[in-house]
Design a protein around this nucleic acid. Structure first.
Lengths: 157, 157
DNA sequence: TATTGTTATACTCTATAACTATA
DNA sequence: TATAGTTATAGAGTATAACAATA
């Protein structure tokens, strides 16, 4: 791993002291995700598969027939925000939405053949993107990082 | 650290398989930051100091007289987006904005006494918030996490 | 009563393009 | 010509409240 100084920001040759901010994990989380987001957009350019859409495709693929609400709860997406996302995926021809046989309020979601193909294609691109972003970390460090992030995400607030 | 399963999401007793998504660092980064953001808002409620504003206060405190553009570059905030943020902080009485003696295009920023006080108060709240979010990690793990995140944020895209 | 999906809405963050005044 | 700050604008993510249909 490089000799990254946590307390300063380097830009165009200028090193600026971040003050107390540099010691805060939340700040580094934000900057790391910002870098991830920029490269994610590059990696999937042209596919129309934003991060949220990829997550939905992945969860439906792993749980065919799952309801819209269950997908949202698994991914931390509000019910209200799921509507437009599922509409997009249905409109793109990647998701089939049918009335659930068990519960007439709910929808049963499955991937179409095109949806499976797009999931595979975008997964390949995203893997390459992650490889680029994590090139400075060993496999053990990546596992440790993922575990720590999952631990944080699971904190009961 | 807890026995967090990276491949499933637990919600109200339901364990949902995330599929390929569960193996992606970018996803765990997003969820961890989401949890951080929710608790950050709780921690600073009533202060009006959002994450971006805190960062700006911290950088100005560590670099009195710094220009608006330098602050933005240090924090990864676009020039265009800095304007409203600095306006807010000036309006709140936390930042003094004066014409730079060296360069009449630029502004020289310093904290007011109230700005220093608010930085201190919000820093205390944010430290408590980070302690809560990182309770499951040892000090060594926190250092490792911060270093890995800084490494990721520094990747040349 | 509670839940599913829906609509409407709003706030924050981020991004780009074009303008002005200075350098 | 390049840079500092500004304005306008747009996309994406996330949040809440209220509603209809169904459980």
């Amino acid at each position: 791993m490089g000799v990254t100084d946590l307390t300063t920001a380097e830009n165009a040759g200028d090193a600026v002291d971040l003050g107390i901010l540099g010691s805060m994990i939340g700040y580094h989380l934000r900057r790391a995700l910002g870098a991830f987001n920029i490269d994610y957009a590059r990696a999937v350019a042209g596919t129309g598969i934003r991060q949220g859409l990829f997550g939905i495709l992945s969860v439906i693929a792993a749980n065919p027939g799952i309801s819209q609400g269950m997908v949202g709860r698994a991914l931390g997406i509000q019910r209200a925000n799921m509507v437009a996302l599922i509409n997009e995926l249905v409109g793109m021809g990647y998701v089939d939405r049918e009335a659930s046989p068990d519960d007439r309020r709910a929808f049963s979601l499955t991937l179409t053949a095109a949806g499976h193909a797009m999931l595979q294609e975008s997964a390949v691109r995203i893997r390459e993107h992650e490889e680029l972003m994590l090139a400075g970390l060993t496999a053990a460090q990546r596992r440790s990082l993922a575990a720590m992030l999952a631990e944080i995400a699971a904190v009961e607030i």
